[in-house]
Amino acid sequence: MMEYIAGHYNYWLIIIIMMAGFYTVISRGNLVKKIAGLNIFQVSVFLLYISISNVKDGAVPIIEEGVTLYSNPLPHVLILTAIVVGVATTALGLALVIRIKEAYGTIEEDDIHNQDQSL
């Protein structure tokens, strides 16, 4: 049992990071912190992809004499795309936060909500 837990330590770590990020998104009222949480959440997925690409005793996937077993390079490529997407999302999110700050004068969710209600 212990061996099972220890043997999958990377997955446990991923789950912890994922939940931490997810929790931040849900619980924080500060719009920037939400974006930060979203980033942490996405990072856990990057780690997941990198984890699954690892092949036991596999070498770095660069062709070399005498090496027969490589790690799978495809997830690396995939996650590169996802990282790019993540960066774009973050940029767009932060841009929106700036606009919200200009329009409302605050980036706290509750304050914004109150301002909209009072209209």
């Binding site: 998104v25 997925v45 999110g93 329009a103």
Partner: peptide, 27 residues
């Protein structure tokens, strides 16, 4: 209206969570 900004932000958060869920599944 300025609510468009918050609506968009809300959609961004929810949409990104959705998309990330999807990519976890794909992985």
């Amino acid at each position: 209206q300025r609510q468009a900004l918050t609506a968009s932000y809300q959609y961004l958060i929810m949409g990104t969570i959705g998309a990330t869920f999807f990519i976890i599944g794909v992985g």
